[in-house]
Design a protein around this nucleic acid. Structure first.
Lengths: 250, 250
DNA sequence: CGCTAGGTTGAGGTACGTCAAGCTAAGTGG
DNA sequence: CCACTTAGCTTGACGTACCTCAACCTAGCG
């Protein structure tokens, strides 16, 4: 919960910049504007609430390090994690418009977030429309990811669904440089993974084992290694078009 | 496919205005700006493509009358409809940022759409930031609806899922005045409904019959009548918070 | 040493899907 | 007017994918 004012090395902005620059170029002025926003950094322990459902936040945040999720808790006691977020993801930019949160944001691992006040973001949207379009673009991509997830939940079996998730996470983590040789950290236990996949823990375990038995991935100690990426993508029917990986003027 | 220039009675704008004014007030200038956009009206027959997956549209559109869906077609031959849209919904505002469409938009019934060029919308976003925020808000609500649908697909049984969809459609259609005494038109056959629900036609049919047997709804000739709304909402665990029905400054 | 969180496995139930047949109502051509 | 077709709804039988419950195993930790 330590404030930041040093303009020199805004190291924590790197993942956000990577996400934006993957889709378009950012000018020096735009970068400076981002660096000069009065960011507030804060670290959340595992499974704690970053933003509470029903609250009316006056800030939005992106992930500096760790993983986070949007969570909907059901009256019956279960929950569905409706998205998973990686470093560089603006998790609740829509909070600026929606006012009241219809879901929680929780830390899926220990997680550092950078907060900026809505008022500051709104000013930025007026002064730097192109930069704002890029931030809105990330929100639009977020919507595309949700559509793809709806397709997975509606029409794919448990193993293919898991494979699709792994393929997507790999691409998104590559963008922020968190993948080396098809290997990346995903320190989730199988219970949390099940909450994402819309499955029981048992079925999640069996799907994982199937992927391992097929020699498509290995998963040990929170590290995923994709052994055979083309085959994994084929199994999942994964097509990365929805992630908008084209770098072009927006 | 007839152009429009008459400024007098832009009757077709009414559903869009209803959707926006449900969330905030619109000034006379904003209304005039919407009326003066060079809209292009076009009617699509049942099951035709309004926007093709993979295309790079230069316009965005909202629904004037009828129902439309976003559709993802799977290699196996099936499809998932990832959203359902009603009059007043801006279906592909995100196309402005995403450039390339990751899904199709199809007419679920005969359907009239109003198109505006991206260039015109972009100008509007610069000149009338508040109006633009309201349009962006509808896109954010769209995302919230998708999240709620992910929850349904992941954690609700077929009957509850169907009940939830009906509750949501009822609220959204009320906003545009298409519901009277709990009754509204939903001229979908069960095959298309199944494509939305992520179910087989058989299971869709049985879920419908269950709701009818419980005396919660009746469905005849494309008309749905909600017989017992509180019980239907309770069964679906429906909470309309995600639809952002509060009218407040945005 | 015992405790705990997390992974794994088996057994049995349930909610789906698939296949196939029969039904109805609307439309079409004679 | 009737035969015939067609789209859509409904039902039954049967298979499968998933869930729940319960046990057991392992590694870490006090």
């Amino acid at each position: 919960m330590h404030g930041r004012t040093d303009k020199a090395g805004q190291e924590f902005l790197r993942p956000l910049l990577a996400v934006l620059e993957r889709r378009d170029t950012i000018s020096a002025a735009e970068r400076a504007a981002l660096e000069n926003l009065p960011w507030r950094l804060r670290t959340f322990p595992l499974e704690t609430e970053v933003i509470a459902a029903g609250s009316r936040p006056e800030e939005s945040c992106f992930i500096v390090s760790g993983f986070a999720s949007r969570a909907v808790y059901l009256p019956g006691g279960g929950r569905q994690l409706t998205s998973i977020h990686v470093p560089g993801d603006f998790v609740d930019l829509h909070g600026l418009l929606l006012k009241e949160m219809d879901h929680s944001v929780i830390a899926l691992t220990e997680c550092t977030m950078a907060f900026a006040k809505h008022s500051a973001l709104r000013k930025l949207s007026e002064k730097l429309p192109h930069l704002w379009r890029l931030l809105s673009l990330t929100a639009a991509i977020d919507g595309a990811i949700q559509r793809s997830w709806i397709t997975s939940l509606g029409r794919r079996g448990s193993t293919e669904r898991l494979a699709h998730l792994i393929c997507e996470l790999c691409v998104r983590l590559e963008i922020v440089g968190a993948v080396s040789e098809g290997t990346f950290q995903l320190p989730l236990n199988q219970t949390r993974l099940a909450d994402i996949l819309g499955l029981s823990v048992v079925q999640t375990n069996r799907s994982l084992q199937k992927l391992r038995a097929m020699d498509l991935i290995s998963w040990t100690g929170g590290m995923i290694a994709i052994v055979d990426r083309p085959k994994l993508a084929a199994l999942a029917e994964f097509d990365d078009i929805y992630l908008n990986l084209l770098r072009e003027p927006r």
